[in-house]
Design a protein around this nucleic acid. Structure first.
Length: 680
DNA sequence: GTCCCTAGCTG
DNA sequence: ACGTAGCTAGGGACT
């Protein structure tokens, strides 16, 4: 039966003098030492404990919304626990398990324990490697617990990772997937939620939302009475008794989901899962410690860009001859261009006139307004996204904390948010600095995706190029266009060749290549034809990938990671826009995804290597094929070994081409780097 | 508040 | 037929 709060009278978080809410079985509150000790006595006998933290942001100026993506986007080390949940099952206990909520920092005068009263026994249990731990999104909770000085062992299990790996869009992973039974992947719509409540609802608890409604009602009423925005009503003001079943059902579901999901793992998915699991505390550590920022540099940049934005804005209004429009509004901007009789040739996806950078560049020569807008956009982008936003998110020690996501991409890549530290432009990389007296070391894979292509296709020319250590773009230029001693001409040919090389990874057609390189579509078509004659093995491989994907409705990369593309099996969709896109996606997913899984394995291997050497050197950032390290000067020798580790993931022995890692370093910042390591 | 669109930054 | 994968900012239209 759904639990309905019986008495609606709310005293703004003071829930002490009346039993306002009944706590339904089997959920229990742990608010006294005897209750805590009783729970601990039982929990010590458990083989597996599901854990969860309820949190609030450490800083008031950062947003919180328990259901939105922004919540997880907030670097987890920026949150603190307001309560802990525990679930477990004992052989001689109740079949439905035992589910506890332990309030720690609720804004209530109801009795609650202080962490200091329970730290020692809690610590011991959390670090007891005989008791397995499972979380839903372990990385987040690990950092919250770390914020309270609590470590977790052994390496936790994670139902979020399991669900994402099992392609659990309603169905378990199966060896011969029935394409019709697997949820169709579309490109415009979000994938099904892997949120705990949604998963629970689909798999273990049809009425998973029943405790949430009361919490939402409370927060709404509280917001109304205090004048706060609902999103600013943190969970610590929710009456403890109301919170107990809501919070403790999280761990109840986690426990049940783990039992269910882990049963679906096969050999391949289990191997992927183990790598992902090993990655969790490593990424958590990178997030928790953060990246050091040169605050004075950023503050100076803020002033500098403020001036630039103001000046370029004025320049736009001058060029337009009017200032009655918002130049951040494309809609209004298009109108201004049209009234000035500037021809807008290209269209956006929805068919409206486009004012993209490429379009503005075309117009720049003849229309000063276009170049003025481009200049404004550039300055305003950097100021808004990379200067002001980064400054606002600095911690007291001038470190910035992002959140790396290992389950968010369709290919297996890592992503980053809150802020995204994987798309910092070169100019702003100057703000990223090593600790005082340390060095920055960057290690990036050379042409990782093209090497994967060479391996997959076994194309003789590509294999030869990588085995000889050629510059692959120059080699392509020579093979497709021939060599020349004229350096300017060679550079031109190399540039086109580079476009062609990337085109195979992305599936670009002649039109797009022409737009990129500035040549005619006919010329690009001719280049593509010659390219595929030179790399005939590559063309053959791409055809094979598509044929296989058509038969199975999926692709499977070098590590066995899958992506379902059921549209490829549907004859009625053949030769539609979406179909052609799926073909490109099939090929790209193998290339990008194999590289990504290799990179994930490398992060785990490097972390293990550094740990085994008790090194102070640490990973700070990862950007798809690049790792950034802080290195104390007396550990520079280690970097050569790190490079070796990176060049030899388990899969390297099976690859038809060598992997090459380029190392660079800097004593100052991420932008001003030099090749190799400093001379000894 | 939500969502979509357009834009622009990265590999 | 014809550029993969992400994140974030702002405007604008909706509830």
């Amino acid at each position: 039966m759904p639990h309905v709060p019986s008495r609606p009278a709310i005293q703004l978080g003071l829930d002490d003098h009346l039993p306002l809410y009944d706590i339904p079985a089997p959920y229990r509150k742990v608010a006294t030492l005897p209750a805590f000790e009783e729970m601990m006595a039982r929990m010590r006998r458990a083989e597996l404990v599901a854990l969860d933290t309820e949190t609030r942001p450490r800083r008031k100026d950062l947003p919180l919304d328990g259901k939105s993506r922004k919540y997880h986007a907030l670097a987890s080390s920026m949150n603190e626990a307001i309560g802990l949940c525990f679930s477990f099952r004992l052989p001689d206990g109740p079949a439905e398990g035992e589910h506890y909520y332990l309030p720690l920092r609720h804004a209530t005068s109801t009795k609650q324990l202080r962490l200091e009263q329970i730290r020692a026994p809690l610590c011991e249990l959390l670090r007891d490697s005989r008791i397995a731990k499972v979380f839903h999104h372990a990385k987040f909770d690990l950092n919250v617990l770390r914020g309270d000085g609590l470590e977790v062992a052994p390496l936790p299990e994670d139902t979020l990772m399991l669900a994402s790996l099992l392609d659990l869009y309603g169905l378990p992973r199966v060896d011969a997937p029935d394409p019709a039974a697997v949820r169709e992947e579309r490109y415009t719509r979000e994938r099904p939620s892997l949120g705990l409540k949604e998963l629970a609802c689909r798999h273990v608890d049809r009425d998973a939302g029943r405790f949430e409604r009361a919490i939402a009602d409370f927060r709404e009423r509280y917001a109304k009475r205090t004048g706060l925005k609902k999103s600013d009503v943190t969970y610590d003001v929710v009456p403890v008794d109301l919170m107990v079943p809501y919070a403790a059902s999280d761990t109840r579901w986690t426990l049940e989901l783990f039992t269910l999901l882990s049963g679906f793992l096969d050999q391949t998915s289990a191997r992927l899962y183990e790598t992902e699991r090993a990655l969790i505390p490593i990424l958590a550590d990178m997030e928790f410690r953060g990246a050091r920022i040169d605050r004075p540099f950023l503050e100076a940049a803020a002033t500098e860009y403020q001036v630039k934005v103001a000046a370029s804005r004025a320049a736009v209004y001058r060029a337009a001859g009017r200032d009655d429009f918002d130049l951040d509004s494309n809609q209004q901007l298009v109108e201004v261009f049209q009234r000035a009789h500037v021809p807008l040739a290209s269209r956006t996806a929805s068919g409206r006139p486009s004012l993209s950078k490429a379009e503005l560049e075309k117009l720049a020569k003849t229309h000063p307004l276009a170049s003025a807008v481009a200049t404004y956009r550039k300055a305003s982008k950097i100021k808004g996204t990379y200067v002001d936003s980064l400054l606002a998110k600095l911690d007291d020690g001038d470190h910035i904390h992002c959140s790396f996501k290992a389950h968010g991409t369709r290919t297996g890549r890592l992503s980053a948010d809150g802020p995204n530290l994987q798309n910092i432009p070169p100019a702003m990389r100057a703000a990223f600095v090593p600790p005082e007296g340390w060095l920055l070391v960057m290690a990036d894979y050379s042409q990782i995706e093209l090497r994967v292509v060479a391996h997959y296709s076994a194309d003789p020319v590509m294999l030869d190029a990588f085995r000889r250590g050629d510059d692959i773009h120059t080699r392509t230029a020579v093979e497709v266009f021939g060599a020349t001693s004229d350096p300017t001409e060679m550079a031109r040919r190399r540039k086109i060749a580079k476009n062609l090389n990337f085109a195979i990874c992305y599936g670009a057609g002649a039109g797009k290549i022409a737009a990129m390189s500035g040549e005619s579509v006919e010329a690009s078509k001719a280049h593509l034809d010659r390219f595929y004659r030179v790399y005939a093995g590559l063309a053959r491989w791409k055809r094979e990938v598509v044929l296989r994907a058509r038969a199975t409705g999926m692709v499977e990369n070098l590590y066995g990671r899958r992506r379902f593309l059921p549209i490829l099996t549907d004859p009625s969709q053949r030769e539609t826009r979406a179909y052609w896109k799926a073909e490109r996606v099939a090929v790209n997913t193998l290339i990008q995804g194999s590289s990504a899984d290799m990179f994930k394995e490398t992060i785990v291997n490097v972390a293990e290597f550094l740990r085994s050497r008790a090194a102070r050197t640490r990973m700070v950032l990862n950007v798809h094929d690049e790792l950034v390290f802080y290195v104390p000067s007396d550990e520079l020798e280690l970097v050569r070994d790190v490079q070796h580790v990176m060049e030899h993931p388990s899969i390297a022995a099976d690859l038809r081409v060598p992997l090459v890692v380029d190392v660079s370093h800097s004593t100052t910042n991420w932008k001003d780097k030099q090749k190799g390591l400093p001379p000894a």
